[in-house]
Amino acid sequence: MKAFTYSRASSPAEAAAEAAATPNAKFIAGGTNLLDLMKLQIETPAHLIDVNGLGLDSIEPTPEGGLRIGALVRNTDLAADARVRRDYALLSRALLAGASGQLRNKATTAGNLLQRTRCVYFYDPRQPCNKRAPGSGCAAMGGVARQLGLVGVSESCIATHPSDMAVAMMALDAVVETIGADGISRRIALQDFYRLPGETPQIEHDLRPGELIQAVILPPPLGGAQIYRKVRDRASYAFALVTVAAVIQPDGSGRLAAGGIAPRPWRVEAADAALPQGGAEVSAALLDGARPRPDNAFKQPLLARTITAALAQAREMQGKEMMS
C-alpha cells in the first residue's frame, strides 16, 4: 500500500471540491473494496477523503413516491429497511445475497455501485490487464475465464461487474444523484452510468473527476412479483455465476436485469419485451451478440434456465396472492 494523506470531509460539496483539487485523491466510505485493492497496489491513491461523516446515511421518501437512498446507507441497513423490504423486495434480496454479514455492515450503497471486477488477472498486478494497466493486454483471453463475461465484453476486456445490488437497481431503473466539484448536482440513470469496456476498460462509469455520489433514487414502487436469483457454486459468501433480478406483473410483462455475464449489470429492452414469451427468449435477447469463452459458455444455458425458474417463481407468487 502506498502512503497516503487522509482527511475527513465536512460537506459533500467540500468533499467533491477537495477531490478535484487534490492529485490522485479518492473517496473512502466502507473501504471494503478500496482497501482490498490498495493492499495489492491495484489502487494507489495519494490522498483519501473519508466521507463517512457526511450524513448521507438516511433513506427518505421522494415527492414522486419513490425512495432517496443516501450514498452512505450501509448494505445491511438498506436491505433491512421496512419500505425496501415491502416495496422493493428484489433490492433487499440482492443485497442479502452479496458478500457476508460483516461486509454488508460496512459496505455502502455508493461503494457497492463502484465495485471493481473480481477477474483473477485484474487482481494480480504481475499479470497483464487492460483495466488495471491500460495497454498491457488481457490475460483472461485464453486464460481462466469461468467467472467472466460473454456479452458487452470487448477484445480488450471480458471482466464482469461483481455487484448484486446494482443488478437489482438496474431492474428498478434507479437513478444516481451526484454532486460535482463545482457544487452542482446532477442525476444519471443507472442505465447510462456504467460504460462498456470497448478499448478503454479502465473507464468504468460516467463520474467526472471529484464527482461524489450523494444518493441513489428509486422510482415509485412497481408492485408485481419481485425476484432476485443468484446462482453460485458455494451456498453463500461467493460471487455469482449468473444472477437474475426481475419484477414481473400479473400480465406477464415486467423488467429484468442479469448479473455475472457482462461488464455491467445487464438490461436489454428486447429482453424485457420478451418476458411474456418465456426464459429462453428473454435469455436469447440478453445474450444477443455473446462471445462466450470455452469455460464460460455454460452461462448461456444457465441464464436461460435461471430466468425460466424466476418466471415460474413469479407465477407461483402471484398465484399465492390470488388465493389469499
Partner: peptide
C-alpha cells in the same frame, strides 16, 4: 486451483477465488 496453462500458475490465488465450504454448505 484453476491452472493458467499458458502462464503456469494457479490463477485463483485467494480465498475469494479458491472456494472452500462455508457454514451454509
Amino acid at each position: 486451483l484453476a491452472v493458467d496453462h499458458q502462464r503456469g500458475y494457479f490463477a485463483n490465488h485467494d480465498l475469494a477465488g479458491y472456494e472452500v465450504p462455508v457454514h451454509a454448505d
